[in-house]
Design a protein around this nucleic acid. Sequence first.
DNA 1: ATTTAACATCGTAATATTGCAATATTAAAA
DNA 2: TTTTAATATTGCAATATTACGATGTTAAAT
Lengths: 107, 107
Amino acid sequence: MGITKSQIFTEHQNDLAQFFKVLGHPARVAILQYISNQNASICNDLVEEIGLAQATISQHLKELKSIGLLHGEVEGKSMCYCINVERWTDLQNQLNTFFNNTKSNCC
Amino acid sequence: MGITKSQIFTEHQNDLAQFFKVLGHPARVAILQYISNQNASICNDLVEEIGLAQATISQHLKELKSIGLLHGEVEGKSMCYCINVERWTDLQNQLNTFFNNTKSNCC
DNA sequence: ATTTAACATCGTAATATTGCAATATTAAAA
DNA sequence: TTTTAATATTGCAATATTACGATGTTAAAT
């Protein structure tokens, strides 16, 4: 069907999966890394750096914004995008909690 | 197009994104959590616990196996699935490295 | 040997995602 | 005011994902 049955999972499971999902595309990984190296970035730099069409980069930026990982500031005609460090750290902690709670031995 | 342009990204970016992607479905999060709580699990338990069809659970298990996170052992007619702790820890370290390297202040 | 139980795989329908061209929108520059 | 530059949005085509019924496969139980 292509539709995820979110109703049968907990809110936490859905949230966690949503975070992972947004990070689950190489363009979005690359965007985060590039912004981090530059300490900030305008969209046009990303288009040239990454090599996807402007519309496509814009879409990926939107998804990263949707989970609060990026925020953009208008700078004249440009947008300055940067990582929301507080959210970034929060997310890292959440993922580590998941990893630590899910470790187990077996078989 | 629906097709990711993997060629334009580094192997590391693609690998990282692939890990995130596999974890980016609530059913797979739920499977990992359940297996962890039980310390191991047979597929049929998961079908009852999670409430997806057997074929669907089997498919999700396959994806978790594809990144080495789970391994299954034949136990008579059943399969005993469990988390590959070594791989699990390795993955956690990789993700933390990514998070630590990608932190940045801005704007 | 048959049956049964537990999984895996296949085929398929429905929906989601990716990517881009075309077209807004917005603000500075001319 | 018109132009230009930078980004967002829309509309689509191609491919991927999710889910499940039906059908294999395998090993224990009868």
